[in-house]
Design a protein around this nucleic acid. Structure first.
Length: 613
DNA sequence: AATGTGGTTGATGCT
DNA sequence: TAGCATCAACCACAT
C-alpha cells in the first residue's frame, strides 16, 4: 500500500456525491485519510453570516459527518478551529501529511487564502491536488473562452461554455473511506483576531467557538449555535446532502414540472409550497452538485414526451444554472472589484445615496468589500433603508417579502427583484451595496457571486439596463396573488383586511380598518409602529419617487461613468452631475457610451479632449 | 458603420 | 383571458 497520508479539505463541497476533488483524494489509496473542515475567522467575523445560514451550515456538516462515519466507523468530519493559513503548516508536520486535496474556489478571499496554504504546502513538501466541481464549467476556463473577459451576458456563457466541452457527468459517491491517522495536536494554537466582528449584533452571548482547537470536548465536533453565541435559528429550511438529494429527486420525479419550468412564470407569492425548487442553498453549500442537477434535468428532458413544450434557456431550469455560471465567471475575472461599484470597470456609476465610502487608494481593494463602510449622506435615505430592511415600509408587499427573508432566509427570485428594485432605482435610490449586505446576512442561499451580480442586475448598473421597467410595490404582488394570502401570512396585522385594500391599506376607509382591527399610523421607525394592530403609513408616494428615480437614472446613464473611472474615484464626478441637464450634455453622454463601447475598457478622457476641440 | 432585433421576470389599457 | 401597443428609450449583438 502506498504511504500516502491525505487531508481532504471540505469547503464549498459538503457532499460525497459527484465530487471530482474527493474522488481524486480517494484515488490516492491513502494509509491515512482525514476529512476536515477548518473554522475560518474570515467566515466567522468578517463576513455577514446570519443565524439562519449558520444553522444551515451546521446541518450540512452534521449530515456529512454522519455519512462519512457510515463509510468508515473510525472516521468523521474533523472540525479544526483555527485559520487555515496558520493551521496547515503545523498540521502538515504534526500528522506527516503527504497530500492536501480540495475543490477549487474562485471567490476572491478564497483565492488569496488558498495561495497562502499552497505556498505552505510547497515549503512542507506536501503535494496539493485541486479539482473543480463548483459550477458547470471551471469559471477561469469560462473566462478564457470568453476572450479573457468577464461573462456579462447569458449569450456569452452559452457560447463560451461548450467551447470548453460538455458538462462533466456526475461521479458516484465513494463506498469506502480509509481510516484517519492520529489526531493529536502537539503544537501551539493561534487565536484569531476577533475584532471587528461583523456579526456582533447577532450574538446574544460571547463567541466561544475558538476557545479550543478541537472544540469544547476535544473531539473535533461540529459547533453549535450556542457556542457561537447565537440565538436559535428561525428558518424552517434545513441543510445537508441527504435532504439536498431528496429535494432534487422530488423535483426531477415530476417530469412535467422539470421539463416545462419557466422561471418568470413561477409565483413569488407561493409559500406552501414554494413555486421553485428551493435547491439554491444546497448548491451554495455544495451539498448538491450543480452537475448532478444539470444531468438529472437533462435526463428528464431527453425522455420527456408531455403535451406542453419543454422550456429552454434562459427561462428553463438549465437556464438558471447558466446564470449561476455567468455570475461566477464575472466574479472570477473581476475579483474583489466585482463586489462594489468603486474600482469595478463593469459597474455603471450611479450617485446613489448610502454608497460605499471611497477607499483611500486608487488601486482595487485587496480586502473583501463586505468590510466596507458607508456614510449617511441622507438621513431620509437611511431611514428608508432601515424601514426597508425590517419590513416597515408601509407597503405590505415589500414588507411581507422582507419579513419572510429575515425569518426564513429565503424568498422567491421575483420577490428579490421587487425588493431590490424598490430599494435602488425604483423607490429609495439607495445603493445596491446596502441591499446586497442585508441579503448577505439573511439569505441561507447567499452566494457572493450571484448576490452581487443580481443586485447589479436589478439596480441596472451591470448585466441589465432597462431601468424604465420598474416594479410597482402594489401592482406586482397583486398580479400574482389577488387575495393577498402571501401578505396576510407575513404581515399578520393586516390578516383580516379586505382584499380590496390589502396592498394599499392606507387607502382603506376607517370602518374597514376598524373591522379588520388595524390602525395605519406611525412612521415605521424602529421602536414605533410595532404595537399590536398597528401598521405604518407608506414611507413615500411611490408614483412620485418612481418619477424622481427615473430622472436620476436617465441622468446617470447620460453621464455614462463606470466604477473604475478616475473621476468616480477622486470625487470630481460631482461636476458632471451638478450641471443642469441640457441637450448638449445628453449628446455628450451618448457619445461617452459609444466611445466606451468602441474602445473597450478605455476611459472617457479621449472623448472629453475631443469634445473640447 | 448604421440599423434592426431581442433582451429570463413592468404597468396599463385596449381589443 | 390572452395578446398587443404604448409608455420611454437602455444595452448587446448580428448584419
Amino acid at each position: 500500500m502506498a504511504k500516502t497520508r491525505v487531508i481532504y479539505w471540505f469547503r464549498t463541497d459538503l457532499r460525497l456525491h459527484d465530487s471530482p476533488a474527493l474522488r481524486a483524494a480517494l484515488d490516492l489509496n491513502a494509509e491515512a485519510f482525514w476529512p476536515i473542515w477548518t473554522w475560518d475567522p474570515h467566515y466567522v467575523y468578517k463576513t455577514r453570516v446570519g443565524v439562519n445560514r449558520w444553522q444551515f451550515l451546521i446541518d450540512c456538516q452534521n449530515d456529512l459527518s454522519k455519512s462519512i462515519t457510515r463509510l468508515n466507523p473510525n472516521s468523521k468530519l474533523f472540525l479544526m478551529r483555527e485559520a487555515p493559513q496558520t493551521l496547515f503548516p503545523k498540521l502538515f508536520r504534526a500528522w506527516k501529511i503527504t497530500h492536501l486535496v480540495f475543490e477549487k474556489d474562485t471567490d476572491p478571499y478564497a483565492r488569496a487564502r488558498d495561495a497562502v496554504v499552497m505556498e505552505a504546502a510547497k515549503e512542507a513538501g506536501v503535494e496539493v491536488i485541486v479539482r473543480y466541481g463548483r459550477t458547470l464549467w471551471d469559471s477561469d476556463e469560462l473566462v478564457k473562452k470568453n476572450g479573457n473577459k468577464p461573462t456579462m451576458s447569458i449569450k456569452q456563457v452559452e457560447a463560451a461554455g461548450p467551447k470548453i466541452g460538455p458538462v462533466p457527468k456526475p461521479i458516484p459517491a465513494p463506498n469506502s473511506m480509509p481510516d484517519p491517522g492520529e489526531t493529536t495536536l502537539n503544537f501551539e494554537r493561534e487565536v484569531p483576531e476577533q475584532h471587528p466582528d461583523l456579526n456582533e449584533g447577532c450574538r446574544e452571548k460571547k463567541d466561544k467557538s475558538y476557545e479550543k482547537i478541537a472544540g469544547p470536548n476535544g473531539d473535533f465536533a461540529v459547533p453549535t449555535l450556542a457556542e457561537l453565541g447565537f440565538p436559535p435559528a428561525t428558518t424552517p429550511h434545513r441543510g445537508g446532502e441527504s435532504i439536498a438529494l431528496c429535494s432534487l429527486h422530488k423535483t426531477t420525479s415530476n417530469a412535467t414540472y422539470t421539463a416545462t419550468f419557466q422561471k418568470p412564470k413561477t409565483a413569488p407569492t407561493a409559500f406552501s409550497p414554494q413555486s421553485t425548487t428551493l435547491l439554491s442553498p444546497h448548491l451554495h453549500f455544495g451539498t448538491l452538485s450543480v452537475r448532478q442537477f444539470y444531468w438529472d434535468v437533462q435526463d428528464v428532458l431527453s425522455s420527456y414526451k408531455g403535451k406542453e413544450k419543454a422550456s429552454t434557456p434562459p427561462t428553463s431550469l438549465i437556464g438558471q444554472l447558466l446564470f449561476r455560471d455567468m455570475y461566477f465567471g464575472a466574479q472570477a475575472h473581476l475579483g474583489h472589484a466585482f463586489s462594489s461599484t468603486l474600482h469595478n470597470p463593469k459597474c455603471r456609476f450611479i450617485p446613489w445615496q448610502l454608497s460605499n465610502a471611497p477607499t483611500p487608494t486608487t488601486t482595487p481593494p485587496s480586502n473583501p468589500a463586505s468590510t466596507s463602510t458607508y456614510t449617511i449622506d441622507s438621513p431620509q435615505a437611511e431611514a428608508w433603508f432601515q424601514r426597508w430592511k425590517y419590513g416597515r415600509t408601509g407597503f405590505p408587499w415589500i414588507d411581507a417579502l422582507m419579513r419572510q427573508l429575515r425569518q426564513e432566509g429565503w424568498i422567491h427570485h421575483l420577490g428579490r427583484h421587487a425588493v431590490a428594485c424598490f430599494l435602488t432605482r425604483g423607490g429609495c435610490y439607495v445603493s445596491w451595496e446596502r441591499g446586497a449586505e442585508v441579503f448577505e446576512e439573511w439569505l441561507i442561499d447567499h452566494e457572493e457571486a450571484c448576490n452581487i451580480g443580481n443586485w447589479q442586475w436589478l439596480s441596472c448598473t451591470a448585466f441589465f439596463a432597462q431601468y424604465y421597467r420598474i416594479y410597482s410595490p402594489v401592482a406586482f404582488g397583486k398580479g400574482w396573488d389577488q387575495h393577498g394570502a402571501f401578505v396576510r401570512r407575513y404581515v399578520p396585522e393586516l390578516g383580516t383586511l379586505d382584499e380590496k385594500w390589502i396592498y394599499e391599506p392606507w387607502k382603506a376607509p376607517e370602518e374597514e380598518l376598524r373591522r379588520a382591527g388595524v390602525r395605519i399610523e406611525g412612521d415605521g421607525a424602529s421602536g414605533s409602529g410595532e404595537e399590536e394592530g398597528v401598521y405604518p403609513q407608506p414611507m413615500f408616494d411611490f408614483a412620485e419617487r418612481r418619477t424622481i428615480c427615473l430622472e436620476k437614472m436617465k441622468k446617470a446613464y447620460a453621464v455614462g461613468l463606470y466604477g473604475d473611472d478616475h473621476r468616480v474615484l477622486d470625487g470630481s464626478w460631482k461636476h458632471l452631475f451638478d450641471e443642469p441637464s441640457n441637450e448638449h450634455e445628453e449628446e455628450q453622454g451618448s457619445e461617452n457610451n459609444r466611445k466606451r463601447k468602441a474602445k473597450g475598457q478605455a476611459t472617457l478622457d479621449g472623448h472629453f479632449k475631443k469634445a473640447k476641440i
